[in-house]
Structure formats: structure tokens, C-alpha cells
Amino acid sequence: MKILHISDTHGCHRRLHNLPQADIVVHSGDFTMNGSEQEALDFMNWFCDLPCPQKIFICGNHDDCLYGATIDGLDGNVHYLCNSGVEIEGLKFYGVPMFMGDCISDRQIKHYANIPDDTDILITHTPPFGILDFDDNINYGSEELLGRISVVQPRLHLFGHIHAQYGMTILNGITFSNGAVMNADYTNFRKPSLIEI
């Protein structure tokens, strides 16, 4: 199975052209810049139209307009994960968004604690602490998320958020992908990651 991983497109998704073919495309959050409903609707229309058999997305810290929202009317092959999961071709995907209202309380830590033990592919916006999360002399990742990953041991962890750390690494048998395709100054896109699992 080929997974196309993108993140942090910040309202510029329509500038992405010639995306590689994949079985599943995953967007791990920050598809808007200002968090407006109009931006979110434009993204969802674009995302639904992508020529990919299955599509999954979660929200990032810029996508606050969807906090607490129920999204109806998506195509059957488009999955919005919000502390929830979906099984596709025997692989269990689970998504944890990054809403600021959760981050300033203990709710985000609880969401990480609730990641199911049988998760194959974890999707978050936040990186785990110490893994593709370093910028401005700070590790921005979550220690609680890292701790839960060490228990769950997913095959793949897809995230974004830290633009300067775009890339992939493999640690302890887990593939970690920071899919922040837009560069740090929001001017250009990097080539999206295509991961075979």
C-alpha cells in the first residue's frame, strides 16, 4: 500500500500539482491559514476531488473552526478523524487533532492516552518529543505522545507542525514522517512524501 503524506498546506493546497499516485492520501493538519470556515470548505472540496481511492485528514492548530464540529456529506472514501479511527484494507488508522482549546487544558494528554493499542498508522499534527520536532533551539514535540507511541508501537506515525523538520526517519522499527510540505517561510512547497507499507 502506498500512502501519500502531506501536512501544513495552509490554504495553498490548490498550488499542489502532479501529486504522485497513491492508495491513500493523508493530510495531518493545518490545511487552513486563518482557520476560517471558507478555507476549510475549500480544502475539503479539493481533498474530496483528489484522484486517490482513500483519503484521511485531521485538524491542526490553524484549523480551529472545526473544533467540536460534526462534518457531514463527505464522500464515502474520505475520512475525517478526530480522536477516532478507521480501518482500511486491514490497517487501523487513528487520528488525534491539535486544537488549541485541548492543548491549554489536560484534554490533549487524555487524547494521547486514548490512542488504541492496536493502531497501525497514527496520525497527529503534533510531533513526538525529540523526533523531527526541533526549531529555534526548542523541541516542540509532546513527551506524552512519545510515551504513548513507545507503548502502542505503530508501524507508521504521520504528523507535521514543525516546517523546518520536514522529512522521515525510522526509530525502533517505527517510521516517523513529518509531512509539512510548505517551507518555513510559507513561500514554496517541498515534494510530498510517498511511503510504502
Score class of each variant (00 low, 15 high):
Thr9Asn: 10
His10Gly: 03
His10Arg: 06
His10Trp: 10
His10Ile: 09
His13Pro: 03
Arg14Cys: 02
Leu16Asp: 02
Leu16Arg: 04
Leu16Asn: 01
His17Ile: 13
Pro20Thr: 06
Pro20His: 08
Ala22Gly: 10
Asp23Pro: 00
Ile24Glu: 04
Val25Glu: 06
His27Cys: 10
Asp30Ser: 04
Phe31Trp: 12
Phe31Leu: 06
Thr32Ser: 10
Thr32Ile: 04
Asn34Glu: 14
Asn34Phe: 15
Gly35Ile: 05
Gly35Ser: 04
Ser36Ala: 07
Ser36Trp: 07
Glu37Leu: 15
Glu37Arg: 15
Gln38Asn: 13
Ala40Arg: 11
Ala40Glu: 03
Leu41Thr: 08
Asp42Thr: 11
Asp42His: 12
Phe43Gly: 01
Met44Ser: 00
Trp46Glu: 13
Trp46Met: 14
Cys48Thr: 14
Cys48Gly: 11
Cys48Ser: 15
Leu50Gly: 08
Leu50Asn: 08
Leu50Ile: 13
Cys52Asn: 01
Pro53Tyr: 11
Pro53Phe: 12
Pro53Ser: 14
Gln54Trp: 12
Gln54His: 15
Gln54Ser: 13
Phe57Thr: 02
Phe57Asn: 04
Ile58Val: 15
Ile58Arg: 00
Cys59Met: 09
Cys59Val: 01
Asn61Asp: 13
His62Gly: 04
His62Phe: 09
Asp63Arg: 01
Leu66Lys: 00
Gly68Ala: 09
Ala69Trp: 06
Thr70Cys: 09
Thr70Ser: 12
Ile71Val: 15
Ile71Gln: 01
Asp72Tyr: 06
Leu74Ala: 03
Leu74Lys: 03
Leu74His: 02
Leu74Trp: 05
Asp75Ala: 13
Asp75Ser: 11
Gly76Asp: 15
Gly76Thr: 10
Asn77Gln: 03
Val78Asn: 04
Val78Trp: 09
His79Asp: 05
His79Glu: 06
Leu81Asn: 00
Leu81Asp: 00
